[in-house]
Design a protein around this nucleic acid. Structure first.
Length: 599
DNA sequence: TCGATTTTAAACAAAA
DNA sequence: GTTTTGTTTAAAATCG
């Protein structure tokens, strides 16, 4: 009973209080982050140099353990002698040579496994090798595993072996601090295997602080254990408790070729992600520089470019959530709608300083084109409390057309709004009133008495009746539209590639996996093609502008008049929507009370 | 400047 | 009686 009624018509203040976005948004945030932390796109916050260094350390660590393990095995199998020392240099040398050979073979195996895995990743689109990069990271075991390094490593290991023997320390537990201390590389300290790792062969760099974690804490913070599942790459074995997890680790992920290779692969994955992130950051900076974007906070919440130049937050939104935008950490990506009205200065605060600004008709021609655009924008608006640059009528229509039966109740329309747009998770009183108002105002929305009650449908004919002549007669708009169409594709491709390269979960699971988005994509293609068709019929029949799109996504071209109403944005679509709007992928919102019973 | 359109606010009534 | 739904009016803002 907390719906907008009562508070709705009084002031925004109460509506703001009723707004669900705050808490829900945090939930989204958590969910998203968790999704990302599940392996696909780990948050890497170290510099490339640091990462490389750590990886190098880890590589050395792997190799050390391989050797130590071999040595131990040999000792256990009878090679060890109580008095084996310098008195038998020839025998030892022979052993050393054998071990070195085996060691190199192991390295080779690891390298091959690693390359296979990377190839696999590349095939899956999880990794993309840039043209400037080598086709595959063929450098031996990542960085530094050159022959000289191997020799150095071998010296370390053998010296450790000797030290172990001389100290009489022949128990099976390996303490690599000893190794490091006694090695010729004193800088490589702090490589301590934790108690768990010492038994399971887990490779990790632990700080003393980490070492001091209690068992309880550790069980909660172990990066390979979470939600009762082993998070070892490709494992996902269910472990009821931490103890069973440890057992599982020891049994299934012991120190062997496979585990070490997987470790190496993981390192490579992280490295690739880091490299990609760095490249994309650089790319973003260059783009923003090129667009004269003033941004002192590159990590600030991304903003849809079109929203600043063409459409920005409404007055109520600005007043209601003056800090919502910069505090939107979950935005996976900004809409890639291009700016078509000249260079605009985009700042992180501009949206709040502009005051009441409304959409322009020209937004129609700023709409993104490709499915990736739609998907990305969808994701953006789902997570960022940014006002979508679409009219209420367009949104309502889209909501209805997405429904399986092309009809929705008012409450279902409400839910669609809140589900698809974070912006509409607050100020419910305002926008719900607007929705109702639009439903009543526009003739294209037809109320139908149903068995369950009243539902709303869309009268497409009526919808498209409205002022079709306006667009075709405006050369500037047409030009905008075409130019937009022309250059937003590479933008989208770039983003899509970037997302794919980084295997951002949002992209793969939510955007691409959501049938609604595909529906939106096809719908907008239709709309655009219709617009282009219309445009071209008025100007010239040659249609170079749309050819790229159609080459990739041949769609039906609708001969339909465009009207400002439907043309306000990506969601104002002449759609043949036929997908079920069951938002299985939107579980972030499904459990929100706001969706079931708005405020 | 003007007309068209959209958004926002508000009042009101009917239905659930 | 309360809430939801639906209608209508009005004003402000935006854009061509």
């Amino acid at each position: 009973m907390m719906q907008e009624s009562g508070t709705e018509t009084k002031s925004n203040g109460s509506a703001i209080q009723n707004g669900s976005s705050g808490g829900n948004h945090l939930l989204e945030c958590g969910s998203l982050r968790e999704g990302r932390s599940n392996g696909e796109a780990p948050a890497v916050d170290v510099g490339a140099a640091d990462l490389a260094h750590v990886q190098q350390q880890q590589a050395l660590q792997v190799a050390r353990q391989l050797l130590l393990q071999q040595q131990q095995q040999q000792q256990v199998s009878g090679l060890k002698s109580p008095k084996r020392n310098d008195k038998q240099p020839a025998l030892q040398q022979q052993q050393v040579a054998t071990q070195q050979l085996a060691f190199q073979q192991q390295l080779l195996q690891m390298q091959q496994l690693q390359q296979q895995h990377l190839l696999s990743l590349q095939r899956q689109g999880l990794l993309t090798i840039q043209p400037g990069q080598p086709a595959l990271p063929l450098q031996p075991l990542a960085q530094g595993m050159i022959p000289a390094e191997l020799q150095q490593l071998w010296k370390e290991v053998t010296s450790a072996h000797t030290a172990e023997e001389t100290t009489g320390n022949n128990h099976s537990s390996l303490d690599l601090t000893t190794t490091c201390v006694s090695s010729s590389a004193p800088s490589k300290t702090s490589l301590i295997m934790n108690p768990h790792a010492s038994t399971n062969g887990q490779l990790s760099v632990h700080t003393p602080k980490r070492e001091s974690l209690s068992h309880e804490e550790h069980s909660h913070s172990h990066p390979l254990y979470g939600h009762g599942v082993c998070k070892w790459p490709g494992c996902e074995a269910v472990c009821e408790d931490f103890q069973s997890f440890l057992k599982h680790l020891n049994s299934e992920h012991a120190l062997d070729d496979r585990s070490t290779a997987q470790c190496r692969v993981q390192m490579q994955v992280v490295q690739q992600l880091e490299l990609q992130l760095a490249k994309d950051k650089e790319r973003l900076q260059a783009m923003m520089t090129h667009l004269h974007v003033k941004s002192t906070e590159p990590k600030a919440a991304p903003q849809p470019l079109n929203l600043v130049s063409s459409v920005t937050l409404s007055k109520s939104a600005s007043e209601a959530s003056p800090q919502s935008l910069p505090h939107t950490p979950t935005t996976p990506t900004a809409p890639i709608t291009p700016v078509t009205q000249g260079p605009s200065v985009i700042t992180t605060t501009s949206m709040h300083t502009v005051g009441p600004i409304r959409r322009r008709y020209s937004d129609k021609y700023n709409v993104p084109i490709s499915s990736a655009d739609i998907a990305q924008n969808q994701e953006f608006y789902k997570n960022a409390e940014v006002r979508p640059p679409f009219t209420y009528a367009s949104l309502i229509r889209q909501a209805i057309l997405e429904s399986p039966e092309k009809q929705l109740t008012l409450n279902e329309i409400y839910n669609w709004f809140t589900r698809m747009f974070a912006y509409f998770r607050r100020n419910a009183a305002t926008w719900k009133n607007a929705v109702r108002h639009n439903l009543s105002l526009h003739k294209c929305f037809v109320r139908v008495e149903n068995v369950k009650g009243a539902v709303w449908t869309v009268d497409e004919v009526e919808f498209q009746k409205r002022r079709p002549q306006k667009i075709s007669g405006n050369p500037s708009l047409i030009k905008n539209m075409q130019s937009s169409h022309a250059y937003c594709t590479p933008l989208n491709a770039a983003l899509q590639a970037s997302m794919a390269e980084n295997s951002i979960p949002l992209y793969t699971t939510a955007s691409m996996g959501n049938p609604t988005l595909g529906n939106l994509a096809s719908a907008i293609r239709e709309e655009l093609n219709g617009a282009m068709e219309h445009t071209n019929s008025n100007e010239s029949d040659s249609s170079p502008g749309r050819s790229p799109m159609q080459a990739v996504h041949p769609v039906h071209v609708k001969e339909e008049p465009l009207d400002p109403e439907e043309a306000e944005g990506p969601l104002s679509l002449v759609t043949t929507a036929n997908h079920s709007p069951d938002f299985d992928h939107d579980r972030d919102y499904e459990d929100e009370p706001v969706n079931e019973d708005m405020e």
